[in-house]
Structures are given as structure tokens and as C-alpha cells.
Write a protein that binds this DNA or RNA. Structure first.
Length: 569
RNA sequence: GGGCCUGUAGCUCAAUUGGUUAGAGCAGAGCGCUCAUAACGCUUUGGUUGCGGGUUCAAGUCCUGCCGGGCCUACCA
């Protein structure tokens, strides 16, 4: 038995996430966590909300609520949705927790003591009307390069030229529209990542089998231009972790907070502490401290490609730079983006399906299956309603669901609701077992390697193998001349249902649970196919389950297409 | 501008890392079955691997030049 620590990139608190966000980190992380648990490994699966930063403050203001209250409410909303999608976090924490505050301040202190923090005086745009410093993206103005009137302070969306806010003509706040802006001097802490460039590169080069997406993004940041740049890790905001050196004040940094990308990854660790404080476990350190039992932990992170620099560079600098024995990530699984029907998901335009809407129209298993079997592992992928309807109807309803239905109903009508006895397995059963043995090996290999689409393909092939076997063995024909033979076929097929239940649970946990209840069976992962297909003995009672999956009609599909198309420009 | 990824059947994707005749699923066509959610099975149509050069005994795979799509480019998170 191994121990596996799994974290999903933590979703930002500001609003409900769409299906692209879900499939980019939380959902594949859950698949892996469920699989590893099923294989008997000890798993710690952590996620949280990322609550700090300007967007949270603005969203709270828009909602007319104090930011702490807004975040508490949105945390509950996201928690309920993750429960709805059956995301099996051992704990769903909050980056605003007391544990994270303390730990973030601790890391700041030890990094400072290690000489990795620099105090830098810089000038930033301050808005009098808004009463705050503005991030570059919150300033708009006319592009000095092309004349585009809605250029952002960091880059012009029209000519793509990178800008500095002071270069904008007629700059204004995108929050209030105010033009009462001035460049003000302010002091900030920088994390001296540049000093650790070689060490980071050596570490990344020594990793084997990482997705090319992960390493190529990391290498780009390490070697682009002048190489890895230092990064500001503080902000002039109210909402965040106050800048302190551990428990002590940080002279000159009063009233400032740490930047979200400094404290958010630290929440991975703090989340385990929250898990303990919530009474869910005893010892967080054996997952996170290599001096306290974590040296044999395998730590796997899941994230969208936009998060890769922070997980391959900034956070490792925090961990390594501390000089303390914190567990460093072993494998980083990154994802491309899921697009929606020819374009991007868009929160502002209401385009695409969001987590709450998805659960309102169909159970989570339908989404889990489609999203995971189409996970954007190699390139951006695309959600279309036609594809979704076809996959769900064919894979889930016809191939898996109907197999369960035909077997259980045939047995009920001919033998009653118990595994029939008599007859023997023969060459057809041998051939089926040989195929399933081969495919099970492939399935497990893909799951270990986190090759999600390939795993889904193999799982589906095992479902299809059941239908092929049934057609070939034809128990309805055998029953007329040799009922004992038909009994053997049905006995094997019922055992096949149990096997599917176990193997499918990481993808479609609710359907698996329903089947486990109907078959009155356990969920032990198979050691070998032959014994797995003898797990349910003759006489074992079961009940015919309701249809596992319904089909999506053309009318529904058309309705949803219109409903989620978003407002036109 | 720079960098990275990507382009394979109508659609979604494979191809053991340079090795036999480029394979699956869906959709289409034909046949079969009747246990089942009009489900299932079998057979089958469909390809100048974006385009042009090059290296090699051998290229979807490597090099090069075009064309298309996407992402990143460090103060959104």
C-alpha cells in the first residue's frame, strides 16, 4: 500500500465555475483519488477555495456584502456544488483560514531569513475614487500604439502590444470609470525566484514522465528573456493574509497583505491542518513533512495550464527556499482548456454550462463521464451538445446501462432474482476472461499514468465486451435446450455487472453505488478476472435496478443549445 | 514580435516514440438477434495523415518553409 497526496488547483472564490474549470483540475483529481483508494492505497485528497485578491473584494462590493461574509457564502455554494459532482475531497478548505494565515506568515519569515525576500519600492497606479491601488488589468485607456480605446493597462487586446499603465492615453479605472488616477510610490516584498533558477531547472529536468505541457511552460518561464524573474508577493489590499514575519510585525509593510499566488498554494498544506482541526484526522505532518513520515508519500497535483508557472516555479521556491523538510510535488498533471461549442466559455456573457446549471439538468455521472472521457489532455477540446448527447446515450445508456438491464431482467424472468446455479463455464467464458484480463491491465496502467481518455476508452471496451459475449453465448437460445448452460451464462453475466460496478466507480460513482445496492455486492478491486467473475456465488440474491441512465432526447438537446448559447454581442 | 502546443475518416480521438497494409468509437450502409432502455452483435463504406520540399532502406512520426487553430508572454487569478 502506498500513500498518495492529491491536490486540485483551488478554484477562485469569485463565482460559480464552468465545466471547463471542473475538468481542468477538480474532476480528474477526483478520478485519480477514487481510483487510488479503490486500489487500497491511503489517499489524502485536498482542495479549497482561493479567496483573496482584488476580484474577491470587488465581487463582494458588487453584492453589497463585507468580503468575509461574501467569501463564506461562496465557499458554501462551491462546497455544495463539489458535493453535487461527488468530488471526494478529504477536506475542502479555505485559503482565508487561520491555519493558512499562520503558515503563510511562517513561510514569509523563513524565506526572509534565507535571504529570499527583497523589499522593493515601486510606483503603481492609485485611484482616488476607488480608494485603492489598481492592478494593471483594472486600468483602461487608449492604446499608444494602435489607438484602440479599450486597451488594458497590461496589454492591448487589439494590437496585442504589452503595455505599462502609465503609457495609456486617458487612463481610467475599470471599476469606477474614474480618471482621477496617480502613480504612487509603494513598497512591496519580492520573492527572489531568480536566485533559485538553476536549482529549479535541475529539479524539473530530473522529473520523468511529466506532461509536455507542464515542462514546456516551466522551461519557458525559466529561460525566457533574462530568465526567471523575481515576483512581487505583496499587495496593497485589505483582504488577505497580513504581511508579517511569522508572529512579528514587518516594519514598513503595515496594512499590506500577501499576494494570493503566494498564499494560495500554501493552503494545500494548511488545508491538511484544517482537516485535523475539523476532527477528520490526527496527523497532517505525516503527509507534508518529510521528517515526519512524508518521505514515502507520492504527491500529485492537478491544474489547468494557466496555473502551471505557479506550481512549477513559485511554490517550489517557497518550499525549497524555506530550507525546511516540506514535501515537494512528485507529478504535475496539467490540462488544456475545454471550449464551448466553437468558442470559449464566458461568465460575463452567460455562454456555456456552469456547474450549478449542469446539475439542474442532468445527474453528475452524465457530466463526469463525458468530461473525463474527453479531458483536454493533449490539446484544447470542445464541448458540443451533439457530442455530449451521443456519448452519454451510447456509452452510458446503451452499452453499460442496457447490459445491466438485459442481464438482470432475463435472469429474473427465467431464474428469479438470485444468481442461478448449474452449468459450467466453457471456451466462450475463457475468451471473455482473456480479453478482460488484457483490458484490465491496460485500464490500470492508464489510470496509474493518469492517461484519462485512454482509461475511459478501455473501460468502455470492457463494457462492450459484455454485450459481445452475451450475443455470442445467447442465453435466451440456450435456455430452451440446456437451461443449465443458460444458468452458467447468466451467472457469469451477473458477476460481470459486479465487476463493472467496481471498475466504473471512479468515473460514475452514483451509478456504481446504485448497482452495488442492487447487486448486494462488495466493491473489492479485482486481483484477477477469473476470481472476480466468481465473486457472486449461486444463490446470491439481487434486485433488478431501475434503468441506470436515461437518454437525452433531441428536443432536450436543442433546448439546452438555445438556453446556454449566451447573449449575443 | 517571441515562445510553446496543435492539424490524422463527416465528428471525437489512437498509432508501442523511425518499422508490415495508418487504427478505434460515433455517424452512414447491409445483415443477424429478440434477453434488453427501438437496445445488442457481425460485416462494411470512408484517408494523398493541412500543403510543399528534404533526411532515411523505411516518415503520421525527424528537419525545413508555408497555411490554419489554440495558449502563454510574468499586476486577473
Amino acid at each position: 500500500m502506498a500513500r498518495v497526496l492529491i491536490t486540485s488547483a483551488i478554484p477562485y472564490i469569485n463565482g460559480i465555475k464552468h465545466l471547463g474549470n471542473l475538468v481542468g483540475s477538480q474532476l480528474p483529481a477526483d478520478l485519480y483519488a477514487r481510483y487510488m483508494r479503490a486500489r487500497g492505497h491511503e489517499v489524502m485528497f485536498l482542495c479549497a477555495t482561493d479567496e483573496h485578491g482584488t476580484p474577491a473584494e470587488l465581487a463582494a462590493a458588487k453584492a453589497g456584502k463585507p468580503v468575509a461574509e461574501y467569501c463564506a457564502e461562496m465557499w458554501q455554494v462551491q462546497k455544495d456544488l463539489s458535493d453535487g459532482f461527488r468530488l471526494s475531497f478529504d477536506h475542502f478548505g479555505r485559503s482565508s483560514s487561520a491555519q493558512n494565515r499562520k503558515l503563510t506568515q511562517h513561510f514569509a519569515r523563513v524565506l526572509d531569513e534565507a535571504g529570499l525576500i527583497a523589499e522593493v519600492s515601486e510606483t503603481q497606479m492609485y485611484s482616488h475614487a476607488d480608494g485603492r491601488f489598481l492592478p494593471d488589468r483594472y486600468i483602461e485607456g487608449t492604446c499608444p500604439n494602435c489607438g484602440f480605446e479599450s486597451a488594458r493597462g497590461d496589454q492591448c487586446d487589439n494590437c496585442t502590444k504589452q503595455l505599462n499603465p502609465v503609457e495609456l492615453i486617458n487612463p481610467r479605472s475599470t471599476i469606477s470609470g474614474s480618471t482621477d488616477l496617480e502613480m504612487r510610490e509603494t513598497k512591496h516584498l519580492h520573492l527572489r525566484q531568480s536566485t533559485m533558477k538553476d536549482r529549479l531547472e535541475e529539479w524539473i529536468d530530473s522529473r520523468e514522465g511529466w506532461p509536455i505541457l507542464t515542462t514546456s511552460i516551466a522551461k519557458k518561464w525559466l529561460n525566457d528573456g533574462d530568465g526567471l524573474q523575481d515576483r512581487g508577493i505583496t499587495r496593497d489590499l485589505d483582504w488577505g493574509v497580513p504581511v508579517q514575519k511569522g508572529d512579528a510585525p514587518w516594519p514598513g509593510m503595515e496594512g499590506k497583505v500577501f499576494y494570493v499566488w503566494f498564499d494560495a498554494p500554501i493552503e494545500y498544506i494548511a488545508c491538511a491542518q484544517e482537516w485535523v482541526d475539523a476532527g477528520k484526522g490526527e496527523d497532517w505532518a505525516r503527509w507534508w513533512r518529510t521528517d515526519k513520515g512524508a518521505e514515502d508519500v507520492r504527491y500529485v497535483q492537478f491544474m489547468g495550464k494557466d496555473n502551471v508557472p505557479f506550481h512549477t516555479l513559485s511554490f517550489p521556491v517557497t518550499i525549497l527556499g524555506s530550507g525546511e523538510p516540506w514535501k515537494l510535488v512528485d507529478y504535475i498533471k496539467s490540462f488544456n482548456y475545454l471550449n464551448y461549442d466553437g468558442g470559449q466559455f464566458s461568465t460575463s456573457r452567460g455562454r456555456g454550462v456552469f456547474m450549478d446549471q449542469a446539475l439542474e439538468i442532468l445527474p453528475s455521472d452524465y457530466w463526469r463521464w463525458w468530461l473525463l472521457s474527453h479531458a483536454p489532455e493533449n490539446s484544447d477540446s470542445e464541448f458540443t451538445w451533439e457530442n455530449f448527447q451521443a456519448s452519454v446515450n451510447k456509452d452510458l445508456a446503451d452499452v453499460l446501462g442496457n447490459f445491466v438491464s438485459r442481464v438482470t431482467k432475463f435472469c429474473r424472468s427465467k431464474f428469479g432474482e438470485a444468481v442461478p446455479e448449474g452449468g459450467a463455464y466453457g471456451p466462450q467464458e475463457d475468451a471473455l476472461m482473456a480479453e478482460l484480463t488484457r483490458r484490465l491491465g491496460a485500464y490500470q496502467g492508464h489510470m496509474e499514468a493518469i492517461e484519462i481518455r485512454k482509461a475511459a476508452t478501455e473501460l468502455r471496451a470492457m463494457w462492450a465486451a459484455g454485450n459481445e459475449y452475451l450475443q455470442d453465448a445467447a442465453p435466451w437460445a440456450a435456455f430452451k435446450e440446456d437451461p443449465a448452460r443458460a444458468a452458467a451464462i447468466v451467472r457469469l453475466s451477473l458477476n460481470l455487472i459486479r465487476l463493472y460496478t467496481v471498475l466504473s466507480a471512479p468515473f460514475v460513482p452514483d451509478a456504481a453505488a446504485a448497482l452495488r445496492t442492487a447487486m448486494a455486492c462488495d466493491d473489492a478491486w479485482p486481483t484477477d478476472v477469473e476470481s472476480a467473475l466468481n465473486a457472486l456465488p449461486a444463490g446470491h440474491g439481487f434486485s433488478v435496478p431501475e434503468n441506470l441512465f436515461r437518454k437525452i432526447t433531441d428536443e432536450e438537446r436543442e433546448g439546452w443549445q438555445a438556453q446556454f448559447a449566451g447573449v449575443r454581442d
